[in-house]
Design a protein around this nucleic acid. Structure first.
Lengths: 214, 214
DNA sequence: GGCATATCGATAACAACATATCGATATGCC
DNA sequence: GGCATATCGATATGTTGTTATCGATATGCC
């Protein structure tokens, strides 16, 4: 299979293209060029073309790409069409917000339930999703073959909970806890760490202020 | 000033070092070497040393770095000591979760209020933070010199709201909306996009599964 | 005090990514 | 039908980030 490994940076941009293409659908136009797309998104023309080339082969000179085809190819590539089940671990404010967020369906993610160490939080949320006691984690993950877990517990128990998730067969963790997780080699961690984002933002903000004061 | 521009990748790792160093404090040890730190965090030894070199000059052969000094240098560098005020725009579930999240203080961020287009959401949250009508945005940001905004509105109005934030004098936006924002050159956007994270996770998950089935 | 060793900082090789350039090809106009 | 042009895909160059190597230095032991 020609799953030529795609670069991480490209992968980060693909959802942006997809999003923009979808917003173009109501307009009725059928084709779009890499040039136009690049202009609209404030990116380099060549970069867009190169990114698109990694998921599509259908670019035609003078006319560009067929929008609907491109959308389908992107969605397939990103796995938005084959739905993955996932669980949320940690039913604090953020955890419950994610649990009830219905936008995940657009990304091929179906959150089936949440877990929390505090049995008092067990129950059913506004949107009908269940919150279980942590004790049920292993059994439920195994039974439903859950491979993706969303971690939203406080930093001090993140590693311990992460270990349990791994033991339950979870292979990919979306980590919202402000902690660095150590996992076996075959497990993936994607950090969605606010501290990190703030570090970048704050540093760049400081830099631009210094620059503008020169 | 020797603010040699630091790489984004390094910047992402600095909070991780800081976090780990802090967790080491109760242990009572006074020094740590880049080697040890690298081992604990599963990173390259050289990389750690290089990263630390960009914020500190105090590394001594044979003993390593003074932990408390390093923590202070990191905190100063990351701006955790000089508090920045920020506002949340969009008081949906995520917005309110962020508003009530008290962990931001650790990162030098003080969320003063939230705004929402739905006047019905105006009021005060559990933790005493105010939610205002969007109309108040411009005035309050100007008056308090707010420079950082956290954007948590639906994708379809993200750009419009972003424009208003920019007009209100906000210079840095932490964007949780699944949308690509177009901003003036002097404004910073840090995307905290779940779609993107999922794209990466899902793609890598697929790859590892393919690989392991060979 | 001198030597072995852990560790540092710097320089250099390497890899990944972004940007620029160029020929090729399909469309539309004359 | 032939030519001009928009656009594509590919190759080449430059930039940035990572990894490896090496000499320098401070500590602890003999």
């Amino acid at each position: 299979m020609a799953t030529r490994s795609i670069s991480k940076s490209t992968l980060q941009r693909l959802p942006i293209y997809l999003m923009h293409l979808k917003s173009l659908l109501p307009g009725g136009q059928s084709h779009i060029s890499a040039t136009t797309l690049a202009l609209a998104l404030g990116m380099g023309e060549v970069q867009v073309r190169k990114d698109l080339a990694s998921v599509s082969e259908a670019g035609k000179p003078k006319v560009g790409y067929v929008i609907t085809d491109l959308i389908e190819e992107l969605e397939n590539f990103l796995g938005y069409n084959d739905v993955d089940d996932a669980v949320v671990v940690g039913a604090g404010k953020l955890g419950r917000a994610l649990l009830d967020y219905n936008g995940f369906a657009n990304y091929g993610l179906n959150i089936v339930a949440a877990f929390d160490i505090d049995a008092g939080k067990s129950g059913v949320t506004d949107t009908g999703k269940s919150i279980f006691d942590m004790q049920k984690l292993e059994e439920l993950c195994a039974r439903l073959c859950i491979r993706i877990g969303i971690l939203t517990v406080p930093a001090d128990c993140a590693q311990a909970v992460c270990d349990r998730m791994v033991k339950s067969g979870i292979l990919a963790i979306l980590n919202f806890a402000p902690a660095h997780l150590i996992v076996p080699e075959n497990v993936l961690v994607q950090n969605e760490n606010i501290a990190t984002s703030l570090a970048i933002l704050s540093n760049r903000l400081k830099e631009t202020i210094i620059k503008s004061s020169i």
